[in-house]
Design a protein around this nucleic acid. Structure first.
Length: 316
DNA sequence: AAACAACACAACCGCCTTACA
DNA sequence: ATGTAAGGCGGTTGTGTTGTT
């Protein structure tokens, strides 16, 4: 049975807010607060709006100290590194950027930052698998070449690619080029560690050696990033993935073929772990009472390639 | 100048979680 | 323990603006 709608859809106004509506909402909340009930609020002040809509309007635009646009380079870097670490958890990312809203960051990422970082992908005509997560799974000629189960989620792919760019030395946001970003990834036992993970979550007492690292920085810990098992990847998709990851920026990527293949295996292993990896609610960026979690690194870290990567990155 | 495409952003939708009776 | 309502979140869509042909 479906969930009942939060409001009477027939009697609520939709679309852009008028200045009058904004003024009403703002004035009421500034004087009385939200009253702990967004659903009832619009009725109290005579707004023909859904309570959810009021909440969104207040949180994203009307409440004090909201910043719009003008993202700084520093903010770009924070957003990028957090996106790679934790995926599209915009509320968590927004919490690290005072004055920014999750919606704002999400829009900024989707419309600008992502393009800035990833660049334009190859023209679709060159490879059907570049339509990786299109809803219909269509190839360049409009024919469905691959079943949905054989596609890689766009989100996962983006993070994959960004991760590789981070790993490479050429990218302006590289950890190597920006040691200031490295404190987010502390070696085991570092008493000075003040990572994001520790700000919001107590360390796991029995965490293993590798788990003491802020594993979220490795990425691919969110369910969204694990949407598709690459065990289903066919040879063509694998080739295309490699091509996408390496060839496009081959001039600046430091690895060679062996390394590339090892890394590909690492990601394949990681994706393949989806069904068996433990979802650990106390191993991510969230407090233990929250619903969010991360994939238990212990389950994903068995890959030699990954361990090598850890060793390489963290200088272990 | 008009038509079209691309972009940017605001808002909505629906699912999941949480609080509470 | 269970059901329900509300809050919160991420994905998606709609619409206005800007750029290009």
């Amino acid at each position: 049975m479906g969930r009942a709608p939060c409001c009477d859809k027939a009697n609520v106004k939709k679309g852009p807010w008028s200045p009058e509506e904004d003024a009403k909402l703002k004035a009421y909340i500034e004087e009385h607060g939200t009253g702990g009930n967004w659903i009832a609020l619009p009725h109290k002040i005579g707004l023909k709006r859904c309570g959810k809509s009021c909440r969104l309007r207040w949180l994203n635009y009307l409440r004090p100290n909201i910043k719009h646009g003008g993202f700084t380079e520093e903010e770009d870097q924070i957003i990028c590194s957090l996106y790679i670490s934790i995926g599209s958890r915009w509320s968590i990312i927004a919490a690290q950027l005072p004055g920014r809203t999750d919606n704002d960051i999400k829009n900024y990422w989707n419309t600008r930052l992502k393009k800035k970082l990833l660049g334009k992908r190859r023209q679709s005509a060159q490879s059907p698998s570049l339509h990786l997560n299109q809803a219909a799974g269509e190839g360049a000629n409009g024919v469905n070449h691959e079943a949905p189960s054989q596609t890689l989620s766009a989100s996962a792919l983006e993070r994959l690619q960004l991760h590789m760019q981070f790993q490479g030395l050429y990218h302006p946001f590289s950890f190597h080029n920006h040691p200031a970003r490295q404190p987010k990834c502390h070696p085991p036992g570092d008493p000075t560690a003040t990572t994001l993970i520790q700000q919001v979550s107590p360390p796991k007492p029995d965490a293993g050696h590798l788990q003491e690292i802020d594993c979220s920085s490795v990425g691919f810990h969110s369910p969204s990033a694990m949407e598709t098992s690459s065990s289903n990847l066919d040879a063509g998709l694998e080739a295309d993935l490699q091509d996408l990851l390496y060839c496009k920026n081959s001039s600046s990527f430091v690895g060679h073929e062996e390394h590339q293949l090892a890394n590909l295996d690492y990601y394949k292993d990681l994706y393949g772990e989806r069904e068996t990896a433990n979802w650990c609610p106390c191993n991510g960026l969230e407090d233990q009472s929250s619903s969010m979690g991360s994939w238990d690194s212990a389950s994903a870290l068995h890959s030699d390639a990954m361990i090598q990567e850890f060793a390489l990155r963290y200088n272990l």
